[in-house]
Nucleic acid binder design. Sequence first.
DNA 1: CTATGTGAATTTATTCACAGCA
DNA 2: TGCTGTGAATAAATTCACATAG
Lengths: 204, 204
Amino acid sequence: MRYHKIPDETIRRLPVYLRGLQYLLDQGRQSVSSISLADFLHVSAAQIRKDFSYFGDFGTRGVGYDVETLIRQIRNILKLSDTSGAALIGAGNLGTALLAYPGFRTYGFEILAVFDNSPAKIGKKIGRAKVEDIVNIEEITRRGIKLAIIAVPAEAAQDIADKLVAAGVNGILNFAPRFLSVPKKVKVITIDIAMELGRLPYYM
Amino acid sequence: MRYHKIPDETIRRLPVYLRGLQYLLDQGRQSVSSISLADFLHVSAAQIRKDFSYFGDFGTRGVGYDVETLIRQIRNILKLSDTSGAALIGAGNLGTALLAYPGFRTYGFEILAVFDNSPAKIGKKIGRAKVEDIVNIEEITRRGIKLAIIAVPAEAAQDIADKLVAAGVNGILNFAPRFLSVPKKVKVITIDIAMELGRLPYYM
DNA sequence: CTATGTGAATTTATTCACAGCA
DNA sequence: TGCTGTGAATAAATTCACATAG
């Protein structure tokens, strides 16, 4: 395969493929063609083949893709191969919901630490995690955590982001409706619920 | 202005512009140029001008855009002009977090009804809303609610979606990690948290 | 002189269509 | 034969660059 810059859109789709394949694997499916995977995931077959082709020859002509192998390959590309720990900042309703969210495990994430600034919450257990005081946020450095989830009010988000960066985090999943300023080496993905909802009426 | 098909990407950006403009308005800003808005929102100025140009001539050459007028225009385009009611299905942690989410108001949404199937929750008040029994879901027809938010476990999501469609809903914001099959006239936007998180390590 | 609005140029992403391998 | 892998063709989105209006 010749060199090609990998489209961002391709990376965005890989987790979608991964979930679909995981589902097929759970169903006992051994191999899958681009056409049947495409049908299942509501994307085009050519898209799937092209996306995979950027990374190598994963399939077998005349047969299709081996589900288990393909899952492993995608996990490698996305660097989900080994479980990595994440810290959750904010133990409110959203934080609590995230702690209970089953989706993280699929992607090899485990929330290892939870921080909050409310005395009422510090020390309490939520699920398996005990809420720690936000002033000890640099603890994440010692524990080698590189990834954090921000679930605090918008006003506090930038301050928390600064502290996380200082503590060595290089990936942030941000649920606060704010643009976060961080150094280039740190990747932020913001999930802004209202922003998604905002375009819904247009299509209705 | 000649006819142009409006790119989906433009629609996706309008809520981003809207939030930025709202912020500027709160700061007392009266008018804004594409360049300063672009700086503020971290997009390109040409993009902003092109996006707006699809809908008409909103600006004044040599001056810029009137913030208040522009907000009104975007709200019109997105059909956010009058507050519309929404139903929330699922009163778990996520549902509770969504009820407390301040972002909805900005976009003219108000959660008017909350449904759940858990006897422990039915009848309880969460914030201003009283949780109703999911078996009475068709109540939303009577109340003229056209928009719903699904915050139930993945397994239950499709069943709920079917019921919502039957009740006349034509827009769904889906938080369950499942593809929802609905008639073409119904618009679904799925926010899949794990899917966003899944591509974060790739960039780290 | 400033900043919009917009065709044209460019870049990016998707789809087509088919050669080539199992 | 069946399905992948991939250049070539097409479509979509972004950026450029400038004429034009205030």
